[in-house]
Design a protein around this nucleic acid. Structure first.
Length: 488
RNA sequence: GGCUCGUUGGUGAAGAGGUCUAACACAGUGCCCUUUCACGGCACCAUGCACGGGUUCGAAUCCCGUACGAGUCACCA
C-alpha cells in the first residue's frame, strides 16, 4: 500500500527536450528505488491548440530508447486509466470534481470575461500597484451562479483562496516554503470550453492515480501552495514534492523547447548514445556520494538520492557529454561496437575494406558516431601530398629521414608473403633495428605516406593491414616519388 | 513591480562550524608514455567560496542586509 508511485506527465507539443527527459529520469529513479515502485506515463493534452502530431510517438520512442520503461500508461494500460487526459475528459470527470469543489467551498463560478480582467489589470498598472485579480464573482451566491449557468451563460470555475494567512509546504530539495495567501490569485480550474487547466487536471489525476511523489521543475515552486489548497479542500493527501533546478543553456537562459534548443533526438542524430545522454543529464543537478561518474541505469537507481539534488540551475555542457559519450563508445565490446558503427563506416568507405578492422581503430578515437565518416575517408580517397606532414619534432622526423625510411619499408613490405598485422609489425620493426632509428622515425612516415593525413585513427601497421598489400605499396611508391620530386 | 528560489573555478560539482593550504570530473595548459591523434599517467589551473555586516575562540558552512540572476504572477503546460 505504501509503494512509491511517480508519474511522467508530458504534454505532446513536439520533441523531447533535455530538461523534460531529466525529469522523467528522476521520476523513474525515485520510483524504482522502491522495489515495488511504479513509474507511470500520463499524457497531458488538455491544451488542444498546442498539440503537435506525432509527439506522443516521440515520447514513447524516447522512453524506450532510454530504457525508462513505464509500468502504466496509455499504450500498456493499468488500473488507473485512461492515461490520456483528453480521454479522461470524456467521462466528465474534471468537471465533476470542479463542481464538487464548489459544493464544499473550495471554488466558485466566475462569469468575468477576459476583457473584464484586462481592465482590472490596466487600472492596477496605472496606479502602479501589483495586479492580483480580484474576482467580483466571489460575492455571487451559489444559488444565483447556478441559475446563470443553467441559463447557458459562459463561465469558468476558479479556486477560492483565503484572503489572509499563509500556506506552507515542504519540498524535499528546497525545504520549507511559505507564501502569503494574499499574493495568490484565484486560478481557473475549469476553462469555459469545459476543459480543465493543466494545474487542476494535474491535481485530480495525481490523486486518482495515487501518485505519491511529484517530481517537476522548480518553476512550479511558487504555484505549489495553490495546488495544496485544492488538496486540502478535498481532504486529500498531499504528495511528496521534489522540485528540480532548471537545466540552463547558458548563465541566463534555460534550455527550452520553445526556443528550439537541442532536444534528445537532436543529440541522438548527432551520434550520441541514449545511455550516455541519460548518464550525463543524471549528473546535471544531482551529485552522487562517490566519485563514480559513469553509471548504468541500474547503478543509478541504486545511487540516486533525492537529498543530493541541487537547488541551483546547471548549465548543459556539451563538452562533457561528448567526453562521456566517448567513454561509452570505448567501453563497448568490439562486436557490439562494430554493429553500431557499421553504417557510419559504410558512409565513407567502400566495402572492399574490412569494416571490422576499421571499427577497431576508430573505437579508440571517436567520441561521437557522426565524426567517424570524416576520419576515415582516406581509405577510399587518398588525399594529395603534403610535405610538411613529414616534419614532426616529437617523432624526430623530416622529409629526408622519411624518404630513407619509406624506401626501406617499401622493400621489406614488397617481399612480405603473409599480409597481416603481426607480419607487418615484424618486418617493419626489423628495419627499425637495422637502420638504428627510433620506432617513430620509420612508423610515423609510413603512416603519413599511406594516408597523407596529419591525424588518423590507428597507426601505420593497422592501416597498412586494412589497406592491403597492393594499395599500401602503391601509396608508398606514390609518396616516395612525391618526396623525391620536392627534394630536388 | 509583488512573490518564490538561487549565487563555490570557464563548466558540472564536493563541502552540512575547526581535518579547506576548498575533493573529484570536463575543458584548457605543460610534461611523460606511445607508430600520429586519441587512450593512459602526472602536474598546473579558485589568495578564496557574489558583496557587506553579524554570531562564534573559529564560517564556504549559521543569521541579517545588499547586489545580481532565474522562476512565477495565462481560460499554456
Amino acid at each position: 500500500m505504501s509503494e512509491i508511485r511517480t508519474r511522467f506527465a508530458p504534454s505532446p507539443t513536439g520533441y523531447m527536450h533535455i530538461g523534460n527527459l531529466r525529469t522523467a529520469l528522476y521520476e523513474y529513479l525515485v520510483a524504482k528505488k522502491d522495489p515495488n515502485g511504479k513509474f507511470i506515463l500520463r499524457i497531458e493534452d488538455t491544451d488542444q491548440e498546442r498539440l503537435v502530431e506525432g509527439s506522443i510517438d516521440i515520447i514513447y520512442e524516447t522512453l524506450k530508447q532510454c530504457n525508462l520503461i513505464h509500468d502504466e500508461g496509455p499504450d500498456i494500460g493499468g488500473d488507473y486509466g485512461p492515461y490520456v487526459q483528453s480521454e479522461r475528459m470524456k467521462t466528465g470527470l474534471y468537471k465533476e470534481y470542479a463542481e464538487k469543489l464548489i459544493d464544499i467551498g473550495g471554488a466558485h463560478y466566475c462569469f468575468c470575461t477576459e476583457d473584464d480582467i484586462e481592465n482590472q489589470r490596466k487600472i492596477a498598472v496605472a496606479r502602479g500597484e501589483s495586479f492580483i485579480f480580484n474576482d467580483p464573482c466571489n460575492s455571487i451566491s451559489l444559488e444565483d451562479a447556478k441559475k446563470r449557468v443553467a441559463n447557458g451563460e459562459s463561465y469558468v470555475i476558479r479556486q477560492n483562496i483565503p484572503k489572509e494567512g499563509t500556506t506552507s509546504f515542504t519540498d524535499e530539495v528546497y525545504g520549507v516554503i511559505t507564501v502569503e495567501n494574499s499574493t495568490l490569485d484565484e486560478s481557473i480550474l475549469l476553462k469555459s470550453d469545459g476543459f480543465p487547466t493543466y494545474n487542476f487536471a494535474n491535481i485530480i489525476d495525481d490523486h486518482l492515480m495515487k501518485i505519491t511523489h511529484v517530481v517537476r521543475g522548480n518553476e512550479y515552486l511558487s504555484s505549489t501552495p495553490k495546488y495544496n489548497l485544492v488538496y486540502e479542500s478535498f481532504g486529500w493527501d498531499i504528495p511528496v514534492y521534489i522540485h528540480c533546478p532548471p537545466v540552463m543553456k547558458d548563465e541566463h537562459n534555460k534550455l527550452s523547447k520553445r526556443h528550439g534548443d537541442a532536444s534528445f533526438q537532436d543529440f541522438v542524430e548527432k551520434g550520441y548514445l541514449p545511455e550516455a545522454i541519460l548518464n550525463y543529464i543524471a549528473l546535471l543537478g544531482w551529485a552522487p556520494e562517490t566519485e563514480q561518474e559513469i553509471y548504468t541505469l541500474e547503478e543509478l537507481t541504486q545511487a540516486f538520492n533525492v537529498k543530493r539534488i541541487n537547488t541551483s540551475g546547471a548549465i548543459f555542457d556539451v563538452d562533457k557529454l561528448t567526453w562521456m559519450n566517448g567513454m561509452y563508445l570505448r567501453n563497448m565490446n568490439i562486436d557490439e561496437y562494430y554493429e553500431l558503427v557499421k553504417p557510419y563506416i559504410a558512409k565513407a568507405v567502400s566495402d572492399k575494406y574490412d569494416y571490422k578492422n576499421i571499427a577497431k581503430i576508430v573505437q579508440q578515437r571517436a567520441n561521437t558516431l557522426n565524426e567517424i565518416p570524416t576520419m576515415i575517408t582516406f581509405f577510399d580517397d587518398f588525399p594529395s601530398f603534403d610535405e610538411s606532414l613529414y616534419t614532426n619534432k616529437k617523432m624526430k622526423t623530416n622529409p629526408e629521414i622519411a624518404l630513407t625510411s619509406l624506401k626501406a619499408a617499401y622493400n621489406v613490405l614488397e617481399n612480405l608473403e603473409n599480409w597481416n598485422e603481426k607480419e607487418i609489425h615484424e618486418v617493419l620493426m626489423n628495419e627499425v633495428k637495422r637502420l638504428e632509428i627510433k620506432n617513430g622515425q620509420l612508423l610515423f612516415p609510413v603512416r603519413v605516406a599511406i594516408t597523407n593525413m596529419k591525424f588518423t585513427p590507428g597507426g601505420a601497421i593497422e592501416i597498412s593491414n586494412i589497406l592491403g598489400k597492393k594499395e599500401t605499396l602503391s601509396r608508398l611508391k606514390q609518396s616516395i616519388e612525391d618526396l623525391e620530386k620536392t627534394a630536388n
